[in-house]
Simulated assay, not measured.
Amino acid sequence: MTGARYSFTAEVWEHHGQGAWHFIDVPETIADEIEEKYAHRATGFGAVKVEVTIGASRWSTSLFPDKSRATYVLPLKKAIRIAEALAAGSPAHVDLTVIA
């Protein structure tokens, strides 16, 4: 069963810690709606399962709540970043569907 669909453009950022993890912040208004509708179904760490499309790339992953950023963050695998020519600071158009 699929849930709500969202589209937005946001900047890719790199986590400054171990590894070279890259993320995209979900806009606050969308994050608030996702939390309201789906937080009760969240898995470990408050993760919400989603299907994501950026450009020609489509994959399943989870959004993770990030209290310090006050939103959900979307992790970007290296393969996706390479396929879509994304780096820290790049804008990315995201189509996201919550897997309810």
Rank of each mutant, 00 (worst) to 15 (best):
M1K: 01
F8R: 04
W13K: 01
Q18N: 14
Q18G: 14
Q18M: 09
G19S: 15
A20I: 04
A20V: 08
W21G: 04
V26S: 00
P27F: 09
E28R: 00
D32H: 03
E33T: 14
E33C: 10
E33M: 13
E35R: 14
Y38E: 11
H40D: 13
H40Q: 05
H40K: 08
A42N: 11
T43R: 03
G44A: 13
V48S: 06
V50T: 03
E51Q: 10
T53C: 13
I54A: 02
S57L: 11
W59P: 00
S60F: 09
T61V: 05
S62C: 00
S62K: 02
S62R: 04
F64G: 07
F64Q: 01
P65N: 12
S68A: 14
A70V: 06
A70M: 12
T71V: 12
T71M: 12
Y72K: 09
Y72G: 03
L76K: 00
L76R: 02
K77C: 01
K77A: 15
A79V: 11
A79F: 00
I80E: 00
I80V: 15
R81F: 08
A83K: 11
A85D: 15
L86T: 05
L86V: 02
L86C: 03
G89Y: 06
H93I: 08
H93K: 15
V94G: 01
V94R: 01
V94N: 03
D95A: 06
T97H: 04
